[in-house]
């Protein structure tokens, strides 16, 4: 079965979804990411969905699950690059991706993760205290 590649970048993991995922592929990604987070003691996971033409409820739920599992394993997940049409559709579908951090692009997402790695605070805590 195909797998979506996971790259290690320092203490972060980088995933770029470039195919139209069927459900089993999404579940395989969830499993593989969980394994890698532990294997590499990763602190952050960046998921680039800029190539995804749709996010339906299953893919949305999988992204939410990945973020939750990562959290339990002390890693933060940032989903980046959502297309505007996908964002409009997601909201109309009724999916708000609770617990999933998003950033406009990979650069900003990486900056969020890097800040977390440098400061040691989870992203949410950092932003609560930060008051920038």
């Amino acid at each position: 079965m195909d797998r979506i590649p996971i790259l290690k970048l320092g203490e972060a993991l980088l995933v770029t979804i470039q195919v139209d995922m069927h459900d089993r592929l999404a579940l395989a990604l969830e499993e593989d990411l969980t394994t890698r987070i532990v294997e590499y003691s990763a602190k952050g996971v960046l998921i680039d969905i800029s190539a995804l033409e749709i996010v339906d409820s299953f893919i949305g739920r999988t992204l939410g699950n990945i973020a939750m599992i990562a959290k339990v394993l002390d890693a933060d997940t940032v989903v980046v690059g959502m297309r505007p049409a996908v964002a409009i559709t997601l909201v109309e579908l009724g999916l708000s991706l609770p617990g999933v951090r998003t950033a406009l692009n990979a650069e900003r997402g990486m900056a969020m993760i890097k800040r977390r790695i440098d400061d040691g605070y989870p992203i949410s805590e950092y932003e609560d205290e930060g008051g920038s």
């Binding site: 459900d23 033409e53 749709i54 996010v55 339906d56 409820s57 049409a85 559709t89």
Partner: peptide, 17 residues
Amino acid sequence: GLVDQTKVVTAASELAR
């Protein structure tokens, strides 16, 4: 248009599942 395409494809994905 792109948004309408995305909506109908997403709906179709839900129903196909």
